[in-house]
Structure formats: structure tokens, C-alpha cells
Design a protein around this nucleic acid. Structure first.
Length: 488
RNA sequence: GGUCUCAUGGCCGAGCGGUUAGGCACCGGUCUGCAAAACCGUCUACAGCAGUUCGAAUCUGCUUGAGACCUCCA
């Protein structure tokens, strides 16, 4: 695996290009991904980002890296809304639902956990929460103040962007130029407290109606949004670690400000590789709460999105996402979902076929090269769509062997079995579908199909078709294959 | 308005100077009592206009269109 580790190339948003992945400590990876703010149930777009980073986590693990994967939960929300006012989104939800802030957070944390299980996400190594790290956040703010990159104003603390720009490059990640931003300055309520429009809050003085308030050297208040990630990533991964990920929409200002905070306190960019997952689109537009074009991950499972005619399994949804690169936009459409459903079934059928294949003396095709193509795809910035294409190439060959048109040697067969399972289940994170034969219906179906089989043997097509049509009406599809009849 | 990204065959989606990506649909075939399913094969597209090059979907310029960020967002 060491050889494969050395081949891994990652697109670094910081530089805008792919570069070889060289971890700070050989064989180990520290990865931080910005998690959800739990004031509502994560929607499908949120899930795409987490699924993509799950893919990345899984592949790093498969390559043999020892990965510490930290994904935070934002449970203290101080954000700025369109009117420029500081709003506690969790507090707002709490009031709306007549619950305490932590009840809201816990309620949606449980749902998020459930979704992760359903969509087969591996749990991160640590899932720290912002409210458990107030002290660490305060300490970093103090350090930034000591270093002269922040100032206190009326019980709040702001990052001093102009001072920072004398020593560092603000905009290194997003490519933003502050003097261009200036033209677009909005009249913010807090503007009078800020010395400069681009300054951002590290600590906000409490509002009378805040539901969560903490003590600090500057009085009672709330931490700024960006500081929590700096505090938690530093605590668990160190001042500098390997990979920092998140959604594309967090690039600015969130990640830019994280970099400023780390540089301002510790003098270094927190991460060597910045990775950004692209958005999920619906009808060509980013899925978003503010656009109202979102649906919940569970709605697609029970067919209640209102967008599609039928429901899809989590496995199909995940496979569908794996057919697009994590840095590309992806459009959710019914045709595409149907295509993914059929494609996945073709792939899983081939894996079942693989189990039945008989080895010959020699292989008529290059199995090692085929397996290498799996690694090559993933080593190229986690190119899952290419991996999927290569898995379909393997599928074609497996079927040809099954038809006696190609042949495979025993050692190659063992290799292919192992690697197909590794890439389909361990890397892509697809789940083995529960076989229909395990259900309580199985003995009944066995009986019914046996009767239909007798009818067919007697060429009693009327009875045979009656059973088939009746089952079809009950939602059970009967397939007459060479090796007997199956149902699903 | 500023910054940036993208425009690929009926649909989804790779591709980063020379090779049929792949899936789904369509069509042809195998199999089958019929159908479905399954399997095999076929289908050669890159928004437009110029330019660079022996050669461009891939590089450059312009035009048109779409989207993201600039305010919370994965």
C-alpha cells in the first residue's frame, strides 16, 4: 500500500491545482471537515458533502493511512443575516419549537446520526462540538489579541484585517482582494464597532435575548462562527495538519477566516491541503434552504420529495453521487436516479456472478491492469466516476467469462474478487442489499414459484401468467432466468 | 457591480493536445412458451466565432448562456 500511497494526488484549493499528497507524518493523516449546524435536519445537499468526505476518508484508510478524522458539530450559532444583524440560528429554532438550545441541537444530532447510518458513513474519529470548546476558543482569541491582530470594542472582539494584511495574505484561499470587496460594503449594524468593513467577529457581546451565553474576559457573549473550527482543529489535530475540507460555499469567508485566525495566533496556515466539495443542484440551482429547493435525505427514501415519481434506496443515492466527481456540480434528476438504480443493480449482479465463476489455466485478459486502473482512478484526486467506469469494465469482463467468451486464472479470480469487494463496499461505501430470500416472505414465494413452475412444465400458460401478473400487481417482479426463477 | 467557475451525444456524467470514458435510454442480437429480466453488440458528442498547432472537447481571444461566492449555508 505504501507504493499506492505515494501515487495519491490531491487537488489543493489553496493552490488551485493538483499536487502529490505528502502527509506531515509518514503514514498518518490528520483531516478536519466542517460539519453541520444543527438547527434543522441536514438536507440532501449537506449530505453530499459528508458522503464525499466519507469517500475520501474511506480511500485514505484503504491505502493504509492511519487517519484521524475530525468533523465538528456547530451547536453555538452566531451568524450574520442578510440585514447584517447577528442572529443565533439555533436560538431562533429553539424559540420556534419552544425548546432549549441544546434540545434543538440534540434532536437534530440524533437525526444526523441516523442519516449517517442509513447512508453508510463511517463515523469520524472525533465529533467535537463548539459549546464544549468555549475555553479553547477564548484562549485563541486572547492569543490573537496578544499578537495584535484583533481588538476589543464594546464587549466584542474583532479580527483586525488591515493589521493582519501587513504581515499575511488575507484572501490566499478565496482569491478575494479586500479593496475590491470594499466597494460592496454593506451598511452593517455592527459597522460602527468595526474598524474596517472586512473585520469579523471573534467574540460577540451577548444580546439580551440570547439563549446561550458564556463568560469571557470581555464580558458575557458568544464565540464568533469561525473561531470554533480553529479551536477544535487545533486541539485535536495540532496547529498544522494535512487536510481541511468542507463545502465550496464555506471557502469564503469561513475558511479564509480560519486561515487568518490560525496565522494570527500560531503563525501558520492550519492545513496543507484544502479540499472543497461542490454543491448538489436541483433544477440547475444549488440546493439551499434559502432557495427553498431542498429535500431531506429521508424523503428520497420514502418517495415524498414531491420531485420524483418513486423512492430510491440510500444505496442508489450514494452510487448516483459516486458517478460525479466531488469537485463537480451534480444535478438531481429522476432520469439520472433511474440510470443509477439500474447501473448499480448491474454492478451488484456482476459481483454475485463473480462468486460463481470457474477458474481456468490462464487469463485471457489482464486482470492486474484492471485492478490497477481502480487505484489509478482514485489516486487521481479521488476520481470516483472513473473508478465506477472501470468497475463497469470489470463487470463486462466478468459477464464475458460467465458466458465462456473470456477466461480467468485462479489467482486472478481471487484478486478480482478481493478488489471488487474492496472498491465497491469499502471504498465507495455501497452496502450489500439484503437478499429477498432472507425475508419472511421467502418460504411463501418458494411455494408460489414452485406451483408456477409446475404449471409451466405442463405448458399451462394461463395459470403461469396469472401467478406472474398477480405477483406483479403486488409489487413482486418475477424473473425467469437460465438457472431458475427469481423474484424481487 | 466585483471575484471565480462551467458550457460534452436523448439524459446523467468523465476527460486537461493525438487514444471509442462509463451508466441509462434507443436500436440490433442471444436467451425465452410469451413477456420481463439478464447478457453481448451498436450509437463517435464536445455552445458559437476566430486564432495557436502537424493535430484541440482539451491552449488563447471574443460572443452567448448557466451557476457559485461577495449575507447564513455543505
Amino acid at each position: 500500500m505504501k507504493a499506492q500511497q505515494d501515487q495519491l494526488v490531491i487537488y489543493n484549493s489553496l493552490k488551485g491545482e493538483k499536487e502529490p499528497f505528502v502527509p506531515l507524518v509518514e503514514g498518518k493523516v490528520g483531516m478536519y471537515v466542517c460539519g453541520p449546524t444543527l438547527y434543522s435536519e441536514p438536507h440532501m445537499g449537506n449530505m453530499r458533502t459528508f458522503i464525499n468526505f466519507d469517500l475520501i476518508y474511506r480511500y485514505l484508510l484503504h491505502l493504509g493511512f492511519s487517519v484521524k478524522y475530525v468533523r465538528n458539530i456547530t451547536d453555538a450559532g452566531h451568524i450574520t443575516n442578510s440585514a447584517g444583524q447577528e442572529v443565533d440560528s439555533i436560538g431562533v429554532a429553539a424559540k420556534a419549537e419552544q425548546l432549549q438550545s441544546l434540545e434543538i441541537v440534540y434532536k437534530y444530532a440524533v437525526k444526523f446520526q441516523e442519516l449517517q447510518r442509513i447512508y453508510n458513513l463511517l463515523p469520524p474519529s472525533i465529533e467535537p462540538t463548539a459549546t464544549q470548546h468555549i475555553q479553547e476558543q477564548i484562549e485563541i482569541i486572547e492569543q490573537i489579541l496578544t499578537n495584535g491582530y484583533a481588538y476589543e470594542a464594546n464587549g466584542s472582539v474583532y479580527f483586525d484585517t488591515r493589521r493582519y494584511m501587513q504581515d499575511y495574505h488575507y484572501g490566499i484561499l478565496s482569491g478575494r482582494k479586500v479593496d475590491e470587496l470594499e466597494n460592496e460594503t454593506r451598511t452593517l449594524n455592527a459597522q460602527d464597532e468595526k474598524r474596517f468593513f472586512a473585520d469579523f467577529a471573534l467574540w460577540k457581546k451577548a444580546n439580551p435575548d440570547d439563549m446561550q451565553i458564556w463568560r469571557s474576559p470581555w464580558g458575557n457573549g458568544n464565540p464568533g462562527w469561525h473561531i470554533e473550527c480553529t479551536a477544535m482543529s487545533t486541539k485535536y489535530l495540532g496547529k498544522q495538519f494535512d487536510i481541511h475540507g468542507g463545502g465550496m460555499d464555506l471557502k469564503f469567508p469561513h475558511h479564509e477566516d480560519e486561515i487568518a485566525q490560525s496565522c494570527g495566533s500560531f503563525g501558520c496556515n492550519p492545513a496543507r491541503y484544502w479540499m472543497h466539495a461542490n454543491m448538489l443542484n436541483v433544477n440547475g440551482q444549488k440546493m439551499s434552504k434559502s432557495f427553498g429547493n431542498y429535500f431531506l435525505p429521508k424523503q428520497i427514501l420514502d418517495g415524498s420529495t414531491g420531485l420524483f415519481e418513486k423512492s430510491y434506496t440510500a444505496n442508489v443515492v450514494r452510487f448516483f453521487m459516486m458517478q460525479a466527481h466531488y469537485r463537480s456540480n451534480l444535478d438531481f434528476t429522476q432520469d439520472a436516479l433511474n440510470a443509477a438504480e439500474k447501473g448499480l443493480s448491474k454492478l451488484t449482479d456482476a459481483i454475485a456472478t463473480l462468486e460463481r465463476l470457474e477458474a481456468k489455466a490462464a487469463s485471457s485478459f489482464d486482470v492486474t491492469a484492471l485492478v490497477q486502473s481502480f487505484y489509478k482512478a482514485m489516486n487521481d484526486d479521488f476520481n470516483a466516476p472513473i473508478l465506477v467506469a472501470n468497475l463497469f469494465e470489470a463487470t463486462r469482463l466478468i459477464n464475458l467469462v460467465n458466458d465462456g467468451k473470456e477466461q480467468i486464472a485462479a489467482a486472478d479470480l481471487a484478486l478480482l474478487k478481493e478488489k471488487m469487494a474492496v472498491f465497491v463496499y469499502d471504498v465507495l461505501g455501497l452496502q450489500k442489499e439484503a437478499a429477498g430470500s432472507e425475508s419472511r416472505l421467502a418460504p411463501v414465494m418458494e411455494l408460489v414459484l414452485d406451483l408456477r413452475g409446475q404449471a409451466r412444465t405442463n405448458k399451462d400458460w394461463t395459470t403461469s401468467d396469472q401467478i406472474r401478473d398477480g405477483l406483479a400487481n403486488a409489487g413482486i417482479v418475477v424473473k425467469d432466468g437460465k438457472e431458475g426463477t427469481t423474484w424481487s
